[in-house]
């Protein structure tokens, strides 16, 4: 009983101390941990850049033929939106990225697991995959265009190649470095094959898998633009190359801004997933 009393009285004292502090000043959470500060801090530089951009164009420090004003970009966006092209281009690009990412990341997981888990898989596959990874991405484009024409397949294949390698590399490396003692303990308690994988190895590598996925998504957007620049009739990459030919700098800026926004949004979604995974499995 006495022991219990001491135990319960301890937190009470701690609470009291906390309250005292709370009355003296605001609840003390460091500035860098407060939501408003994080949001404002992150928006600071974009707002600054936008203001300087506006200032430079209003003062005509640079001719608008070289640097369109924010308003011009906005007008270009409205104009494209009215023609239905803005929505279409954004949708088709996003669709290509998501499909290519899903295929590439899925294959990356499978091959990464085979190479990381099996000695034989490592011996047979790792050298060839390493060689394929060494090929600069754009070198695939002519081949893909001849084989798969200008259709969706060639673009999705290129994006899948881009998404494959980050996932494959991180998954195979992480699986090789799973704590041997834990794997041994798992085996000693009767786990093997798929059950060992899902009970010990997969949870152990999950955080690295997710950071591989995040890298893969960034690569997918990169390869999307490459694919669309080189042969497309729709999409944000097409908007870039088309506008280059027509000298429409406003639309080029628009495409860049849209790519930044889409990339950031999809990355944030994976980021949320990553945080959840790290909390649950980290």
């Amino acid at each position: 009983m006495t022991g219990n009393d001491t135990l319960t009285s301890d937190p009470r004292t701690a609470d009291a101390v906390g309250d005292d502090r709370g009355n003296g000043a605001a609840p003390t959470r460091p500035l860098t941990r407060r939501t408003w500060f994080v949001v404002v801090g992150g928006a600071l530089i974009p707002v600054l850049v936008l203001s300087i951009w506006q200032l430079v164009t209003t003062l005509e420090l640079v001719p608008v033929s070289q640097l369109p004003s924010p308003a011009m970009v906005w007008t270009a966006a409205l104009e494209l939106a009215q023609r239905g092209e803005l929505g279409l281009y954004t949708a088709i690009s996003t669709q290509r990225v998501l499909i290519g990412f899903a295929i590439g990341a899925g294959l990356g997981l499978v091959f990464g697991a085979v190479v990381g888990l099996s000695r034989l898989g490592d011996i047979l596959l790792a050298p060839s995959l390493g060689a394929i990874r060494a090929v600069p991405s754009l070198a695939w484009v002519p081949l893909l265009i001849i084989w798969l024409k200008y259709g969706e397949e060639s673009k999705i294949t290129l994006i899948a190649i881009g998404a494959f390698f980050p996932v494959y590399t991180t998954v195979s490396a992480a699986l090789r470095h799973v704590d041997r003692q834990l794997v041994e303990a798992g085996r000693a308690f009767g786990l093997n094959g798929a059950r060992l994988f899902t009970t010990v190895q997969l949870p152990a590598v999950l955080p690295s898998v997710v950071s591989g996925l995040r890298l893969a998504l960034a690569q997918a957007w990169l390869f999307l633009v490459a694919a669309e620049l080189l042969g497309a009739s729709m999409g944000l990459g097409f908007l870039l190359s088309d506008s280059q030919n027509n000298g429409r700098l406003d639309r080029i800026f628009l495409a860049i801004v849209l790519l930044a926004l889409l990339g950031k949004i999809t990355d944030s979604l994976v980021g949320l997933f990553e945080r959840w995974v790290n909390k649950r499995w980290g």
Binding site: Q181, L182, E184, A185, A188, F189, G190, T199, V200, P203, A204, R280, W281, G282
Partner: peptide, 15 residues
Amino acid sequence: DRTAVGFQEPRLLPW
């Protein structure tokens, strides 16, 4: 599987 091991290290799954 006729044996069970209590390892020298705890070897618990961290997650």
